[in-house]
């Protein structure tokens, strides 16, 4: 539990969904810094510091990744595989947040070592609750790995 604002990376292709998530977070966890990338390619660029994200200041290592599954070009599962097979990145908790609750997706995500799998509830009250719980669980209750040197912030 730290008072330092935690960096969260949101990988979400639907701009409306991203806006919903951002606004809910802003309302409940103002102290956190949320970065948003809108597809899988951008997410990989972010992690590997390529293209628009070549400057480490634009791509600080996140403490938590919120990842959508179905995205154009490179889908969420590919991004997850990439993170979890990279020694420098695999300790970062990845939470899948998607509209799909197909068993296949759930199974595959856990097989690729997702840390959590959440389905976007269509009920607004439930969604609000989820955002609150998510922030509370991961940013307050949860202990982060003490492996800062493996993925230095700069």
């Amino acid at each position: 539990m730290t008072d330092k604002p935690a960096t969260i990376l949101l990988v979400e292709d639907d701009p409306a969904h991203a806006e919903l998530i951002k606004r809910n977070f802003r309302r409940h966890q103002v102290s956190n810094v949320l970065y948003h990338v809108s597809d899988g390619v951008a997410a990989l660029d972010y992690f590997h510091r390529r293209g628009d994200f070549a400057d480490p200041k634009k791509s600080p290592r996140p403490k938590l990744v919120i990842l959508d599954l179905r995205m154009p070009k490179v889908d969420g599962l590919e991004v997850l595989k990439d993170i979890k097979s990279n020694n420098k990145l695999k300790s970062i908790p990845v939470v899948i947040l998607t509209t799909s609750h197909a068993r296949k997706d759930v199974d595959r995500a856990y097989k690729e070592n997702a840390n959590s799998y959440l389905v976007k509830p269509t009920n607004p009250a439930k969604f609000k609750q989820l955002m609150t719980d998510l922030g509370f669980f991961w940013l307050s209750w949860n202990y982060w790995p003490f492996v800062e040197k493996d993925f230095p912030l700069s």
Partner: peptide
């Protein structure tokens, strides 16, 4: 079937989520 369920749910989520925002 998968696409239909997933992709149709996406605007549904937007609609309902934004209804919540309207309240705020």
């Amino acid at each position: 079937t998968y696409t239909v369920s997933h992709d149709l749910k996406s605007p549904l989520f937007t609609m309902k989520g934004y209804l919540g925002l309207l309240e705020e």
